[in-house]
Computed example of a mutant assay.
Amino acid sequence: MAKLGVLLLNLGSPASTAVPDVREYLKEFLLDERVIDSPPLVRNAIVRGLILPTRPPKTAAAYQRIWTPEGSPLVTVSEKQRDLVAAGRDIPIALAMRYGEPAIAKVIGKLIAQDVDRLFVMPLYPHYAMSSYETVVVRVMEEIAAQKPAMDVTLLQPFYQDEDYIEAMVANAKPYFDQGYDHILFSYHGIPERHLRKGDPSHAHCLARPDCCESCHPAHHTCYRHQCFATTRAIVAKAGIPAEKHSVSFQSRLGRDPWLKPYTDFVLEELPAKGVKKLLVMCPAFTTDCLETLEEISMEGKESFLKAGGQEFAQIPCLNASPPLIKFLNGRIDQWIAQ
């Protein structure tokens, strides 16, 4: 009988807020060809010549603002997720990060040492993007091919409009919705526009027309923008949010190339002039709070909104280790086991 195992996956974090650790993390992250998808020589010049000499101290300072006594919020919360999913199960439930520790290669080695030969790989990314879901899946499959190519692997597919995931998102946000709001901003992590075009199998649909995300097309299976809009529509419908009281934006851009628009930082500065005084921000691209939600949105974003004339600001926490997320993950594991 096959020995079952589950592998939860997320982005990763520096080992500490020390500048050398942050530099090492940024190097691994930004040299990934699916993050900065320029030719190798260009990518190396950008990362080693422009980014690593200047950016690590600034990024380290940002991490210092959110770091806890236990360490990185992303890692410590992910560990709680793993432990809660593992509770009551008699199969190995492992956790690995695409960058940093616990490293994918080591964790897969440990699963193999436990005789696991049927593995459920669960990237905790609701949406497909080459710089998130794709890169972590490719890395996992490379390691399995190197260490145990005969292993039976099942992948959790992007769950951006899964009914149970949407229900978990709404349940998690309900206490904030119930307090009232002028507007809800759905802020998703941005990606370069060229990533959409690269992922479009036709190379003629994504961003080629204003309604590309609404018109049915095979590109939507790997179209991050379409999937973000689909998640928003599903949450809005489930929670009964009025059309005039929500919008979508994209955050965390890097470099000068065009990224998905509108940009969150611009939107936060514009909303007060449109009469929005009490703002809620949801970040559905993230299952776990991290630098991009805790610092970029809850600190920098809040400051920008209030300076522009807003009065009340709240970032609705990610699902983190909440019962709705654990229920969702356990449900998908149970479905896999039953196959």
Results as ranks from 00 to 15, higher is better:
residue 48 R to I: 00
residue 239 A to V: 01
residue 307 K to R: 11
residue 301 G to M: 13
residue 124 L to P: 08
residue 34 R to N: 15
residue 112 I to D: 04
residue 251 Q to G: 10
residue 247 S to L: 01
residue 188 Y to D: 07
residue 18 A to C: 11
residue 257 D to E: 15
residue 107 V to W: 06
residue 292 E to H: 10
residue 157 Q to H: 12
residue 277 K to V: 02
residue 314 A to Y: 10
residue 204 A to V: 00
residue 58 K to S: 13
residue 92 P to D: 10
residue 89 R to A: 09
residue 306 L to V: 07
residue 3 K to E: 15
residue 304 S to Y: 13
residue 64 Q to H: 08
residue 175 P to N: 08
residue 112 I to Q: 05
residue 285 A to D: 11
residue 41 L to G: 07
residue 193 E to H: 06
residue 205 H to T: 04
residue 339 Q to N: 07
residue 306 L to F: 07
residue 304 S to L: 15
residue 1 M to L: 08
residue 267 V to R: 14
residue 295 E to G: 11
residue 226 H to Y: 10
residue 87 A to Y: 03
residue 140 V to Q: 13
residue 70 E to Y: 03
residue 312 E to N: 11
residue 295 E to N: 14
residue 336 W to Y: 05
residue 296 E to G: 09
residue 310 G to F: 06
residue 95 L to Y: 11
residue 114 Q to E: 04
residue 267 V to I: 13
residue 317 P to V: 00
residue 203 H to F: 05
residue 329 L to H: 12
residue 164 D to V: 07
residue 225 R to I: 03
residue 194 R to E: 14
residue 164 D to P: 04
residue 182 D to M: 13
residue 123 P to E: 15
residue 92 P to V: 04
residue 273 A to R: 14
residue 204 A to M: 05
residue 14 P to A: 09
residue 4 L to V: 02
residue 292 E to G: 10
residue 294 L to Q: 04
residue 203 H to P: 06
residue 311 Q to C: 01
residue 108 I to Q: 01
residue 99 Y to R: 07
residue 247 S to T: 05
residue 256 R to M: 09
residue 209 R to H: 09
residue 84 L to E: 15
residue 119 L to D: 07
residue 216 C to Q: 10
residue 132 S to W: 03
residue 74 L to N: 02
residue 120 F to H: 09
